[in-house]
Amino acid sequence: MKPAPFDYSAAGDLSDARRLLAGGAAKPVSGSQSLGPMLNLRLARPGRLVDVSALPELRAVAETAGAVTLGAAITHAEIEDGEVPDPTGGWLREAAGNIAYRAVRNRGTLGGSLAHADPAADWLIVMTGLGATAIVEGPQGRRRVAIEDFAVGPFVTALGAEELLVAVEVPRPGAGASWGYWKFARQVGEFAKASAAVLLDRQKGRLRCAVGALGRPPLLLGDPEGLIEGQVSPAAALRAALPERPAEALVLHVTALTRALAQARGGEEGR
């Protein structure tokens, strides 16, 4: 379990990183919590790793009236510990604090997790629930990608070969908004077997119900209002959205969605 040979460069700033990443054979690395094991198993064999964990642009935080933009190289632990502003008033901190275990959180980064696009990982489903936007920079300049368009398959994103995820813009919820995020991991530190996030933000007109850990990008359900109001059952919603899957394969996801909905409604059952 030793990696194949590779070169390593620590980028000083974003333009340096873009120069090093040019050509597409190099791979950006930040906390190395997912890439590291893949290197050791020789499943990933980049010719060069470009360390982007210290880029000022990826460590930056920007606040506006409507949103907070978090640099991609901000760690889970920094979010957990409140070292960066949490536009949701604690939802991000709580989600961060339940990612894997502390050793992973100390090194793992928000952007690294999203760019890795593991279907069972936390940030992808949480950001989908919150309606976040990915800020991407590449040879053609900077572009914004709605988070539901960012992951396009398991471990596959909309990032071009030379593009880099720079930051994530998280909208501030309106007054009275509530949130539910529930994941089922059998053991502390495991990836989720099923997860769901529910945002109930009537002031800003944002109702979102997303289901994760489906072996594909998060599923953003079409009729959040019906689910939240209880007119559509979680089982029916999932069956309609994923007709090709047998019901028994969705049992855990139905439970996750049920419990996330209950949390958002303020019920005890979601805990």
């Binding site: 053991q187 502390v188 990836f191």
Partner: peptide, 10 residues
């Protein structure tokens, strides 16, 4: 990651 051992919290 695939072979699950019992951990303290279990």
């Amino acid at each position: 990651a695939d072979y699950h051992l019992p951990v303290a919290s279990d």
